[in-house]
Nucleic acid binder design. Structure first.
Lengths: 235, 235
DNA sequence: ACAGTTTCATGACAAATATCATACTTTAAA
DNA sequence: TTTAAAGTATGATATTTGTCATGAAACTGT
């Protein structure tokens, strides 16, 4: 189970300035501080489950989280990731529907929980916050519509290349150009939307083509431009 | 080219109550009235183009519109539809990015244009409107994430069944259980994310399986439950 | 009514991908 | 450390789907 930890103030949060709360005044943050709670989740722990009820907003203080949906035949589909400063669960709250995805920690993560009332209070009282939220949801839509098009039109190999680039953009690269997140082959398959075996084979091909290399379990990007070409990114 | 037509007041608009503007006060609507314009678009006409700049919001007074993205190899991908009371172009405005899709009329349609300033004015001044917009964008996300999962995991035939049901839910059925919108096979293919030939073949199969029948160009749904089973809809 | 164009339809074939079977390898647990 | 379990890898095969070719049917404008 997740461990309740001592909440530090949003004012001192290392991820505050990356978050949607970055423009709030200190009295607004204090109000959140008074009602929020913070939890630590081990790698593999579930933060919330698809189909559940959203009583509030989750904000990632530190960590890496995958958000996935159950496909029709019980196969997981990773929809997006959340990292430091990202928020989760707001779509269900806003649309007053069940949580549309499951959140699982990819590594030890600290996640704060802000009750729905405080969130809606901000929206009612602070137009700038609303605008910030709208900006966020609009960006999400742009991402999503691109993803729909990619899923529908690109080959598995192109999608794999695309996802490797997406992972790079989301989590960045370490000193050795390795993608800064650990995913199993199965998780990559659940992101690309294919079978695990296919991912294994295609990673092998990308390796042969000198686009990537494997440093243990870590994936090193050797030729980012080549990957972008393969993924058929026009922009 | 589209024809500029005489704008009638939002107060008398037949689609007003279905729209995101339904809770506005008459003075707010009058303000929109003073700045908006209305245009008629013939079937096949383009309302706006992907990559363009969003100077405002498009609101469908009457009609049926497809919103699509260009895929990497130049193939159109239909992302969503808009009908009476639906708005378009707001995601690009909100995220301050280029229009992420192209809007084309599927039949003669009347579309009003509301300048960005008025839209942002509403958001700044009316928290209820912001909330309504957030509700809308959140619902869009839920739709989109479902669509991503479907595209990634379902077979072409399942996706076709899924899309037929989606069309039914979006545009409804006429007296004879036919889907209330006319799409070419190619457009259906661009919605399902497959080749036109595949759609033609699969429509043939669905016909043989007595799930649908063809009444000229119109698609009649014979067995909605059967289609839902095939599409593997769990809920 | 006509020719020209587009849309719809079907077959043959090639390519991509899923599935199943089976090892090997690493990680975790006893 | 040993054993079990999970994750990774590879081959063989079947299925699905895309592509190309061709022809019929429906629509369009003159």
């Amino acid at each position: 189970m997740s461990k309740k930890i001592h909440s530090i103030s949003c004012l001192n949060c290392s991820s505050w300035n990356k978050s949607v709360f970055c423009d709030l005044q200190s009295d607004q943050l204090e109000n959140i501080d008074n009602h929020k709670s913070s939890d630590f989740y081990e790698k593999g722990e579930t933060i919330f489950k698809e189909g559940g009820f959203a009583r509030g907003l989750f904000c990632v203080k530190k960590g890496k989280i995958k958000l996935s949906k159950m496909g029709p035949s019980g196969k997981e589909q990773i929809i997006r990731f959340a990292k430091d400063g990202d928020i989760m669960g707001y779509n269900s709250m806003l649309s007053k529907s069940k949580l549309s995805s499951t959140a699982v920690a990819l590594e030890g993560s600290i996640v704060c929980f802000v009750p729905a009332n405080d969130f809606f209070g901000l929206i009612k009282s602070d137009p700038n916050f609303s605008l910030k939220m709208l900006e966020l949801t609009a960006k999400n839509w742009n991402e999503a519509s691109r993803l729909i098009t990619d899923m529908a039109q690109k080959t598995t190999k192109q999608r794999l290349a695309e996802m490797l680039l997406w992972l790079k953009e989301t989590f960045g690269l370490d000193e050795e150009n390795c993608i800064n997140v650990k995913l199993s082959r199965e998780e990559i398959a659940n992101l690309v939307g294919t079978a695990t075996e296919a991912v294994i084979r295609l990673i092998g091909e990308l390796k042969k083509e000198k686009l990537i290399s494997l440093d243990g379990k870590r994936i090193k990007l050797l030729d980012i431009h080549g990957l972008a070409m393969l993924a058929n990114r026009l922009e």
